[in-house]
Simulated assay, not measured.
Amino acid sequence: MIYTVTLNPSIDYIVQVEDLKLGELNRMKHDDKLPGGKGINVSRVLNQLNVNSQATGFLGGFTGGFIKDWLEEEGVKTGFVKISDDTRINIKLKHGEETEINGLGPTISKQEQTVFFEKMQAVKTGDIVILSGSVPPSLGNNFYEQIIAHCLEIGADFMIDTTGSELLEALPKKPLLIKPNHHELAELFGVPLKTREDIIVYGKKCLDLGAQHVIVSMAGDGALFFEGENVYFAEPIKGVVKNSVGAGDSMIAGFVGAYSVTKEPLEAFKTGVATGTATAFSTDLAKKAFINEMKPKVKLIKL
């Protein structure tokens, strides 16, 4: 089983305004409300790939109810802890360029945290736990570390999708996969990465520090995959980018979903490229038919 952990989910309230005027009445041209959160995105895409997962974390209030109902209607299994505070709403205001206003996240009590770790007892040896996104301030600085320690104790694999010191500290614990983009990789090591050769040096360093597999996404310049002594380059697929939000999460879903079935890293990377690209070319997360359409277009070069 794959478990996706989203500690600070949201409703993403997407508002389109043609000509935003601050201090005046503005009317929306269009709006959408979607379940948000990196782990939630992963579970939604895994569902399109017909790979079982359980989405877990913390949900509360009418906003949490909206997210839970949406996921269950799509067929995604959920195991969230119900909390007394409300799940946040993130506003994405589109008026030419996008302006984001993100909520801080709920206050989560010690008792609610205890219930979360009780639910994590369902994770067994051989399962995969995907840790994605931000941590609400009320959970402190080491909540991911506690989850990783539980995974190591029972023999479950974990994948972590975060940045900075949290990611660096997780590497010696041998995550199944990390997926920084090239900017995040540069930030991780505090160095400028100006060329693909620069990126390769530090992608390999992530392996040396403990990661089992590394994907470095480079937006419109493709992606690099590091496994053992090998480095592969996925050429960018041509198309119209409609949605950068969730493309990275979709790539993670494609890789982990395929790897959980086949244990073939290179085939998993191909699936990850297809799912990430399909989402980038969609208005929401990728659907199964479009993912299947992208798969034959994935071209890999061994460097």
Rank of each mutant, 00 (worst) to 15 (best):
D85I: 00
L131F: 10
S109E: 04
H95Y: 12
A149N: 12
R88M: 01
S109I: 01
G96T: 05
V135L: 08
S84D: 13
F116H: 07
L93T: 05
F158E: 02
L167E: 06
V123L: 07
L131C: 11
G164Y: 09
E166M: 06
A170V: 09
F116N: 12
A156W: 10
E112C: 03
S134I: 09
T163C: 06
Q111A: 12
Q146L: 03
T162L: 09
I147H: 01
L93R: 10
K124G: 04
Y144A: 04
F158Y: 15
F117A: 07
G133W: 05
G75I: 11
T87E: 04
E118N: 14
I128R: 05
V76N: 11
C151S: 01
L104C: 00
A122R: 13
E98F: 08
P137R: 14
K124A: 15
S84F: 00
K92F: 03
A149V: 00
V129D: 02
K94C: 01
E166Q: 14
H150D: 09
M120Y: 04
M159D: 05
G75W: 06
N142E: 14
S138A: 06
E145N: 12
V76C: 13
A170S: 15
G96C: 02
G155Y: 12
T163P: 00
L152Q: 14
G164Q: 12
G133S: 09
M159E: 09
G126I: 07
V129M: 09
T87D: 05
I128V: 15
H150Q: 14
G140K: 03
L93S: 11
T107P: 00
K77P: 00
A122Y: 02
T107Y: 14
I154M: 05
V129N: 05
V135R: 02
G133D: 02
I154S: 03
P136A: 02
T107A: 05
F117S: 11
K92P: 10
E112R: 02
A122Q: 15
V115P: 00
F117Y: 13
F117T: 09
V115K: 14
I91K: 09
Q111W: 02
V123E: 05
M120I: 12
I130T: 12
I108F: 10
K92Q: 09
S138I: 06
L171V: 12
I101R: 12
E100M: 13
G126P: 10
D85S: 13
E166G: 00
C151R: 03
E112Y: 02
G105K: 10
S134A: 13
I148L: 06
